[in-house]
Design a protein around this nucleic acid. Structure first.
Lengths: 192, 192
DNA sequence: CGTTCATTTCATAAATTTGTGAAGTTAAAA
DNA sequence: TTTTAACTTCACAAATTTATGAAATGAACG
């Protein structure tokens, strides 16, 4: 590697660090607006913007300038809702947290999702207000909407998986230069 | 109206009031869990569970036991995101706030929605991290997902409108007893 | 025009949420 | 077994959010 090249690399890395942090904070802020707690949002965003897609607690703490306790709490939440998974290499005491770029979307259609809990409450509401009242009918309609939506989301995710496969094929064919965890040879049949 | 009937009505009304309040608070709590602020959630839920679908500030304040200021703030938010509209009868100084059971769902697909802002941030992230890096590729994929999802939501809402029309037709045919704002003769062609 | 009533704005007090340090727990290493 | 390193839990302080009362605005009515 020439000295010129090395200097370029170092400069690029420095620029990236700043750029990554900027993105992490902006994207996290959007997630916060959408209702997520701040720390989970920052941790998730940080993983999303990392090259490997895997970071240790220490790395997250250093990048976000927060305590191990804060990371711990955020990870507890994120793994609970299936957006991040926790790994440990046998023979180490360091956890590694990973965002599955292939799978975190799936959290949207989780069976025990927000929508399901809405439905429970709405069903109760319809029952106690009665189908005959205007209010009861309105609640019933809202219930129908959430049920419809949950059904539709399933179909949507199926189509997304196909769409994603297409995108990755295109990307691979365009560059003929696959490496890392970007686009492992993916077999649509093994999905779900 | 017989005395017996009157007593029944009164008893039913009392039961309903309690039932409505229970529902309102439970549903609002779900919306809060999903990220909405408490007061907007309560106000919206209260409108949703009202027979007329229209309430004044004073009525909302009384049912929820909150100050006019709190109602005002909640309504500002709700009308901004298109979940509630504000009306005033010419020749009155009292506002009336309405939930359009036909339309509040549409707020989900608003052009300036959460998703659109996510996309802006993600696009920036892809640009600054570069398509070549693994992180850049991951962000690009997330961007593709949000774009895909936004597109799909449009189709979904189209299908919902049809589905809703069917539901209402069924309901009307079953009872042959239409009244109030429940199911006005609806022409699918006039939608949107 | 001035009065009255409904809504909005704003400063503030209360309640909730958030992140930290320190102690506690668990499991690898010595 | 003891030591050490990593993660977790917990009580608390700080920051943020939330709802209120009081003052301000605005529009109908006399």
């Amino acid at each position: 590697m020439s000295e010129q090249r090395q200097r370029d690399t170092r400069r690029a890395a420095a620029r990236d660090d700043a750029a990554v942090l900027t993105f992490v904070e902006r994207f996290a802020a959007q997630m916060v607006d959408a209702g997520m707690q701040r720390m989970p949002a920052r941790v998730f965003s940080c993983l999303l913007a990392s090259d490997s897609g895997v970071l240790t607690s220490a790395e997250l703490g250093e990048r976000l300038q927060v305590s191990p306790a804060a990371v711990s709490g955020a990870i507890r939440y994120l793994s609970q809702v299936g957006m991040v998974s926790r790994e440990r290499e046998p023979g180490s005491r360091r956890d590694r947290y990973r965002v599955h770029s292939d799978q975190w979307y799936e959290a949207l259609t989780r069976r025990d999702s927000v929508l399901t809990r809405w439905e429970d409450v709405l069903r109760e509401g319809v029952a106690s207000l009665g189908q005959e009242s205007a209010a009861g009918r309105r609640l019933g309609e809202t219930l129908a909407f959430t049920e419809f939506m949950q059904q539709e989301l399933l179909g949507m995710m199926d189509r997304w998986r196909d769409h994603l496969a297409d995108l990755r094929t295109e990307a691979t064919e365009a560059t003929e230069n696959t490496a890392g965890e970007g686009a492992p040879g993916r077999d649509p049949a093994t999905r779900r």
